[in-house]
C-alpha cells in the first residue's frame, strides 16, 4: 500500500516535471507512457495544465469537453487534407536545402501531404506535443492561431522542408523555409539565435518611441544565459 502511494507520488512528480519541460527524453517517454495508461495520471496532467493556464489568464480556464472538441476538430481537418502521392524534391537552386530535402524525401510522404498550407504543416509537425501540452487552443482556425505566436503562447519555428509542386503556391515567396514548426517559447531558446537577438536588440534605442520601447524591452527579455 505504502509502495503504491509512493509510486503514485513519484509518478505525479514526473508528470509535474514533464509539464514544466524539465525531463530528459527517457524520462519523458516514461512519463508519457504512464500518462497514456493511467486515467488518474491523465486527470492530474490536465489539472497541472489547467492550473498553469489559469495562472496565466482566467480566459484559459476551460472544461475537458473543449479539449476533446479541439482534438476532434483537428482530426477532422487532418482527414480532410489532400494526400499528395508523388512528392518532388526541391530544385538544386536551394543548394543548402538539398541535404535536408534528401533526408525528408527518405522519410516519405508522411510530411509532404501536408504541403498545401505551410502553416498547417508546421502545426502538424508538433501536433502531438501541442495536443498534450496546449490542448485548449481555440478551435476555429486552429492552425492560424497557433501560427500567431501570441495565441497559444507559442513560438513558431520554421525549418527547411521541400514542398511538393502542388503546394508551392503557399511557399511562393519562401522557397527556403516553408515548413513551420510550432514550439513553446522556451523550447526555442537556441543559443545560436540568442546571439543574433542580442546583437539586434542593441539597436533598439533608435525607435521614434524612445528608450522604453526598445531598450527596456530588450533589457527585460534578454537571454537568460551567460
Amino acid at each position: 500500500m505504502l509502495d503504491e502511494s509512493e509510486d503514485g507520488a513519484r509518478s505525479l512528480l514526473g508528470l509535474s516535471a514533464l509539464a514544466d519541460g524539465e525531463l530528459d527524453p527517457a524520462a519523458t517517454r516514461q512519463a508519457c507512457s504512464r500518462w497514456h495508461g493511467d486515467a488518474a495520471a491523465r486527470a492530474s496532467w490536465h489539472a497541472y495544465h489547467l492550473i498553469g493556464d489559469v495562472l496565466r489568464s482566467d480566459d484559459l480556464a476551460s472544461d475537458t469537453a473543449r479539449d476533446a472538441g479541439f482534438l476532434n476538430a483537428l482530426r477532422v481537418r487532418l482527414a480532410a487534407e489532400p494526400v499528395v502521392l508523388a512528392p518532388q524534391c526541391v530544385e538544386a537552386g536551394a543548394g543548402d536545402m538539398e541535404a535536408v530535402s534528401d533526408r525528408r524525401a527518405a522519410r516519405g510522404s508522411r510530411w509532404s501531404w501536408l504541403g498545401p498550407a505551410a502553416v498547417a504543416a508546421g502545426f502538424m509537425a508538433v501536433a502531438s506535443v501541442l495536443v498534450v501540452t496546449r490542448g485548449n487552443a481555440p478551435l476555429e482556425g486552429a492552425s492560424d492561431s497557433l501560427a500567431r505566436s501570441s495565441a497559444g503562447g507559442s513560438a513558431v519555428l520554421t525549418a527547411a522542408l521541400p514542398v511538393p509542386g502542388a503546394a508551392s503556391e503557399s511557399a511562393a515567396n519562401a522557397p527556403d523555409e516553408p515548413q513551420t514548426l510550432v514550439a513553446d517559447g522556451k523550447l526555442v531558446r537556441d543559443a545560436r539565435l540568442e546571439r543574433y537577438f542580442a546583437a539586434h536588440s542593441q539597436f533598439g534605442g533608435s525607435s521614434a518611441l524612445g528608450v522604453p520601447s526598445g531598450f527596456l524591452r530588450a533589457a527585460t527579455t534578454q537571454a537568460p544565459g551567460r
Binding site: 543548402d96 525549418a159 525607435s207
Partner: peptide
C-alpha cells in the same frame, strides 16, 4: 535598416556547412 519605428538587422557571414545546417524561420513574439 530602420523605418523610424522598427529596425531590421541583416547579419552576413561566410557560409560554413558545419555551422549552418539549414535555412530556418522563427517567430517569437
Amino acid at each position: 535598416y530602420s523605418d523610424g519605428l522598427t529596425h531590421v538587422s541583416v547579419f552576413i557571414e561566410p557560409y560554413n556547412p558545419a555551422r549552418h545546417p539549414r535555412g530556418m524561420h522563427a517567430a517569437i513574439g
